[in-house]
């Protein structure tokens, strides 16, 4: 995932104070078990990982049951950029497994918001 990359890039930007929020379609304890398995802890994740086990936020944002991964019918990866006024300015619902906007793309959208 490029979440870490994105976080680091945002940290280095002087003027953008965007908040990254990740949404995971599982219960917290299973996400914790996954982190443990990969040798990390919740402290290693420096942006909030929000748990959506009822899949309701995922459904509202149009992503559940659209990808088969780890035998589950899981969320389609997706990225939304929401401006300070709460309006969606950018949306990308992945067409393929690793289809994410590049860090540069996210930063350029955020810069436009600042103007």
């Amino acid at each position: 995932m490029q979440l870490g990359q994105l976080r680091n890039a945002l940290r280095n930007m002087k003027d953008t104070t965007a908040q990254i929020l990740a949404v995971d379609p599982h219960e917290a304890w299973s996400a914790k078990a996954l982190l443990r398995e990969s040798g990390s802890s919740t402290d290693d994740v420096s942006f909030p990982v929000l748990m959506d086990p009822s899949l309701t936020v995922s459904a509202t944002y149009g992503v559940p049951f659209q990808m088969r991964v780890h035998t589950e019918l899981s969320n389609r990866p997706a990225t939304f950029i929401i401006d300070k006024q709460g309006v969606i300015q950018f949306a990308q619902r992945a067409e393929t497994f690793s289809d994410r906007p590049s860090v540069d793309k996210v930063i350029s959208v955020l810069k436009q918001l600042d103007e």
């Binding site: 929020l21 992503v63 969320n75 389609r76 950029i81």
Partner: peptide, 10 residues
């Protein structure tokens, strides 16, 4: 602040 909302699969 603006928000970058990222849906992950786990």
């Amino acid at each position: 602040q603006p928000v970058v909302l990222v849906f992950i699969y786990g």
